[in-house]
Amino acid sequence: MSGAAVLFDAPGPRARRLHRILTAVGVLLALALAWVILDRLIDREQLTAARWDWLLTGTAWTNYLLPGLFDTLRAAAIAIVLSMVLALGLAMARMSEVAPLRWAASIFVEFFRAVPVLIMMLFTFYFLSINQFTPSGLNPLIGVIVGLTAYNSAVLCEVIRNGVASLPSGQREAGLSIGLSPSQVRRSILVPQALTAMMPTLISQVVVITKDSALGYIILYPELVTSARRIGSAEGATLPAYVVVAAIFILVNYGLGKLAEFVESRQRRRNRSAGGVVQAGTATLGAGVVDGGQLMQDAAGRVHTNVGDAASEAAHRRREPRDD
């Protein structure tokens, strides 16, 4: 449901006239904004062919952009796999009956959700560089991966836990009543259901990870933003380089976002997520957005946010049927 349906009546003749005027104003505003930007760009000679022709030569792509894209995706891919594995372990530990295990996992999760990803990356990078545990060429990559994994595994752990918590209690009770132990119930009944339902959230988290891998710029990891800077100085094309790199990021992440929507709608059709399983709609991101800033959004354009507390979680769940 779009906000507009709540906020506005179906327009009558006067409102329609007003809307037409607003449309005109909107178009004019957009044109004025475009004009101001274009004027500045032309004034600063940013739109000359000399600044953009590197795009058409293969070398800029083979030397900078494609390797940069490859390195960005490589770090993101390794980080998402590691975070997922670690998150599974953390979630199991956080739901375990063994208290010390639970505490340790809780401290890990709360700590790495609070520490900025960049701080963790810097620490890992310099720690490895100072102690020379690893070949120095690998330090930036390891720094990026450790930083991304520490943070995202904590977030995903909370996603799994929320998913398990939102399963109908009958699932757990049925498992216990056929004689499974609590940990068996979690392993073979609860977590698998939560995992299937969290696929869309997981894909959205890949967007967060891809974006955050750009932090590697600061620890000299040769990802796309670094490519942009290099092209900028090599070709004298700073602005075009950043525009192109931004476009690449937007394309990749927009595609991933669409993929998440597709997976989610397919799950809805198959009705896999029936019965209050983490419908990606209610799937809540741990401290939400603790994530480097990304709010998860699902197909209907709703925002998933941290719903650690029961009250707003219930509000989200109640909101669900209305939205569809």
Partner: peptide
């Protein structure tokens, strides 16, 4: 869909440096 790092660096190098 754009990384914050890119936006911040572009603010310095493009917004100020180029424009």
């Amino acid at each position: 869909n754009t990384p914050l790092t890119l936006i911040v660096v572009a603010c310095s190098l493009v917004l100020w440096g180029q424009l």
